[in-house]
Design a binder for these strands. Structure first.
Lengths: 234, 234
DNA sequence: AAATATTTGTCCGTATGTATC
DNA sequence: TGATACATACGGACAAATATT
């Protein structure tokens, strides 16, 4: 009957506060956090609660605690987290995985025009290297193939210098490899030729061909398609 | 001189052990872990140390603790990933915030067609309520306004049942409300009328008007515009 | 419905090992 | 070498939320 908003548990609030502190004060990797004693006093929680928050950060790789010295901020990497996190429903067709692929598809198609005009000759060289690595990895090494695939797409949008887009895409790829490892590979040959088509359009500096190649690349069944671009404004 | 591998800290070992326990015993989402007391006894560590490990898992979304009941294994969710990725990369930088807004704009415009056809009469009622709350919040209470704004947009895409899209948008809003508080409010009156235009198009079941209203809504300067939709395929 | 037991949440005090000066 | 500051680890105690009888 009462709609009183209950507060979160203290260790969750503490986690948020410390994270906010790092961001607000622009702490960089290598910088030290205040001591546990200071922070627990400042936040008004016990040292125990505070440690639960700090240790969480440490196990996520955000910070590194060192006795006698302090707690140091580190570069946050998703790979670190994904080594620890548990994946269920691997192998099966998972709804959320397809949703995630769909979002990646949307983002890439949305930003592809900007990306096209931002690409340099060096970037295209990277793309060629990635495709070569796809060929070399072959069927036996699916991890290597996925890795080359990831680098290809990250390189495509690197020129945008959009750090949020970049890390978002990295995150999606990290989840991808986390799941995909257990599955068997799709048609690698088809996938490679589609990437080659993208490169070809770039070499010819043909945006319309590029856009078409990108759409075809994402026309696989594993991408949950949202609004089709073609349908818009038609 | 001695290369003796020093053992990791206890809470890290405890984390690994618990994680291994989940896998070894085939625990599925919904299953309960042993009690903190049992596990700390079994692992030979204090309850304090054990909690540091458990709370790390909870903040990663691997488990959920519930007083009086126990600690439940949970399905992997992207909420945690998106929250932390965005938080760590946005970092209060104006450029990053605008990039993030740009991504939200892209996502909403990309999924708006699906959303349009998925909206029910109840959903539209929610939208009306949100706009009413925007009016009531007024200039003095910007937090209330942003809250209503968030609810409006979340309701728009609720019908899609796309959990990944939802959590991503929630994460973006979380950063938004966190930083926007420090700024002064933009033209609230303009913003309200744009939301009302969206509702009007829905009441008239006019998709083209809806798409136009959505574009106009996002035409403010705070959104870093990527490829314009109109330019595509033209 | 009400009392009881179980489980997590939170705090405190203390001792120890380690890095820094 | 010593002194200090810091994280690590333990145990106990009580509160709050939930489940059980």
């Amino acid at each position: 009957m009462k709609a009183i908003k209950k507060d979160d548990k203290l260790y969750i609030q503490a986690f948020r506060e410390i994270r906010a502190y790092i961001i607000r004060n622009g702490l960089r990797p290598g910088d030290l956090l205040p001591t546990e004693h200071d922070m627990s006093e400042k936040l008004g929680v016990s040292r125990n609660v505070l440690r639960e928050a700090i240790k969480s950060m440490e196990l996520m790789g955000m910070v590194q605690a060192c006795p006698g010295r302090g707690t140091e901020v580190r570069e946050f990497s998703l790979d670190f987290v994904f080594q620890n996190v548990l994946f269920f429903n691997v192998g099966g067709e998972d709804k959320s995985v397809r949703e995630m692929f769909g979002i990646r598809r949307m983002l890439e198609l949305s930003y592809m025009r900007q990306a096209f005009y931002a690409l340099t000759e060096d970037d295209i060289d990277v793309l060629r290297t990635c495709v070569r690595q796809m060929h070399e990895s072959g069927d036996e090494n699916y991890l290597a193939f996925t890795n080359a695939d990831r680098k290809f797409h990250m390189a495509l949008f690197r020129g945008l210098n959009n750090s949020v887009l970049n890390s978002l895409m990295e995150a999606i790829w990290a989840v991808d490899t986390g799941f995909e490892l257990e599955k068997k590979s799709p048609h690698l040959v088809t996938s490679i030729s589609r990437h080659e088509a993208i490169i070809k359009s770039l070499e010819e500096y043909d945006y319309r061909a590029f856009a078409r190649a990108m759409e075809i690349h994402f026309s696989s069944g594993k991408y949950l398609k949202p609004d089709s671009f073609e349908e818009y404004d038609s």
